[in-house]
Amino acid sequence: MTETTATPNPVRERKVNLHVLGPVLALVALILLGAFLNSNFLSYGNVTNVLARSAFIGIIAVGMTFVITAGGIDLSVGSMAAFVAGVMILAMNALIPVLGIGVPLVLAGMAVALVTGLAAGLLNGFLISKVGIEAFIVTLGSMGIYRSLTTWLADGGTLSLDYAARSFYRPVYYDGLLGISWPILVFALVAILGELTMRHTPFGRYCAALGANEQVARYSAVKVDRIRMGTYVLLGMLVGLATIMYVPRLGSASGSTGVLWELEAIAAVIIGGTVLKGGSGRVWGTVTGVLILSLIDNILNLASIVSPYLNGAIQGVIVILAVVLQRGRKSAD
């Protein structure tokens, strides 16, 4: 948001646009690097793979953008995704005798995922906005709860969707429309709606106001509790949606599903230029951040130029660099 700049001289204005473009430039640089290192990088197959892979974290990160913009944080999304996936698989397996294999079963599974996500988000939101516990603590707690509930549901192993049901459901991840797979389409739709909501609706404006200064929001008759709760519920539902896309991929969930997704989602949001302490959020930026994170992985796998032991370090450096470049503007003042 250019509106947040402190002083209005034209020189600064141009820099600000650069700041908005920063993550995009980083993304372009990564794409060029990838294309340079491997000729298959820009192949239809690889591009589809990377985008579809980004979709889970991406859908979640769009929700996370709202939570962080409103001054919150949610550490539980990775565990929540595992839990939602587990519940969804159990529900679908249990419903096979009733509904048989077919569209009703898949729709029922989707409904279960959305409702479970909503309920999980509602619980987080309730504890944070109504009971007034710090978001960090609430979601740290629920992170552990959802994770171990998943392990418990799976009896320490893996929950697998019935083979026939999975074969029927599988196209939701692997097929698509006009050669674009469903996860990519859903991710794009969520991103567009997210951007519209953030920039053009009262909800988005209130989220930013709440994150910028809760007191001002309260004194401006903003329903602070409801907005805050809304961000967590929205995130919960998006986790449900991401799970709907995730389950058909491998047809299973275990205690190790979605590990560290929360950190990837948060990192994507921050790389994208949303302020960690809230007040200003950019959904487009988040999408860019998600793509940057996926591309780093992809390029490291495709190029094998460094020891795989160092993959994590390279990711870390790029994440920090992306944010440093963005903030460079402020410290230059």
């Binding site: 298959n40 990088f41 192949s43 793979n49 299973s252 599903t257 590990v259």
Partner: peptide, 17 residues
């Protein structure tokens, strides 16, 4: 990392490469 999702991603990239 003995993880299904990670293995899926790595293998996708191997197949592209």
């Amino acid at each position: 990392n003995w993880n299904r999702d990670d293995a899926f991603n790595v293998m996708q990239d191997f197949l592209s490469k």
